[in-house]
Design a protein around this nucleic acid. Structure first.
Length: 196
DNA sequence: CTGAAGATGCCCT
DNA sequence: GGGCATCTTCAGT
């Protein structure tokens, strides 16, 4: 398999374009017990200061959001109840934007995924932001990690043509921001998270 | 220090 | 369709 790592400047495009562009590329996690590769099939953009749904809305700068103010192409992980969620930091330094990875399709390392999420239909192992981090073994340890390095990075994958955009998921109390079409997904891909 | 809230998912009815 | 698990963060005392 061709494994061309996405260059630093890939992450420098505007956040909405980045969210769209990430679809089809392969997320690689070199887990201690083996390598897992999965194709990104669903993303959401969070536009920082001007986006009420973003943690960094209004320029809110805390320990948690700090990494979003830094270089694009780094990892913003955070905990949602019992789950870790994975974001890619976007926007130039000082502009706290990010792209949430919402769903992936396994390409390699199925045995490991089965180990992390046993007894489930394949589709149910990675069709959600909390599910995929568990399946790939991604934890809060990766907060601030650069995607230019091991053990977590993104390589060039496949072109995706049937992209659909729609409202983001799970942000009911964010006023106007609730309806912004900042969610992107491969329309025909069965691993896209279902609802909405 | 305490408590409330949350970009979720799973299990129950 | 509703309740709840279970963790971290952050604002308020």
């Amino acid at each position: 398999m061709r494994m061309k790592r996405l260059p630093k400047d890939f992450y420098e495009q505007p956040t909405l374009e980045l969210a769209r562009s990430l679809l089809g590329h392969y997320l690689v996690h070199q887990h201690p017990t083996g390598e897992i590769i999965a194709k990104i099939v669903e993303t959401e953009a969070y536009l920082g200061a001007i986006d009420r749904a973003a943690h960094s809305f209004g320029g809110r700068r805390t320990n948690r959001t700090e990494v979003m103010f830094g270089l694009p192409g780094h990892v913003y992980t955070y905990q949602m109840h019992t789950h870790t969620l994975l974001n890619v930091v976007s926007g130039p330094v000082g502009t706290p934007e990010a792209v949430l990875i919402r769903a992936v399709e396994p390409i390699q390392g199925q045995a490991l995924i089965d180990q992390h999420r046993p007894g489930l239909k394949p589709v149910d192992q990675t069709n959600g932001p909390g599910k995929l981090t568990k399946a790939l073994g991604i934890t809060m340890d990766l907060y601030g990690h650069s995607l230019q390095h091991e053990p977590l990075f993104i390589v060039e994958g496949e072109a995706v043509t049937d992209v659909e955009a729609g409202p983001r998921v799970g942000i009911p109390n964010t006023g106007e921001a609730r309806d912004y079409p900042y969610r992107f997904f491969e329309r025909t891909n069965p691993y896209v998270s279902k609802y909405r």
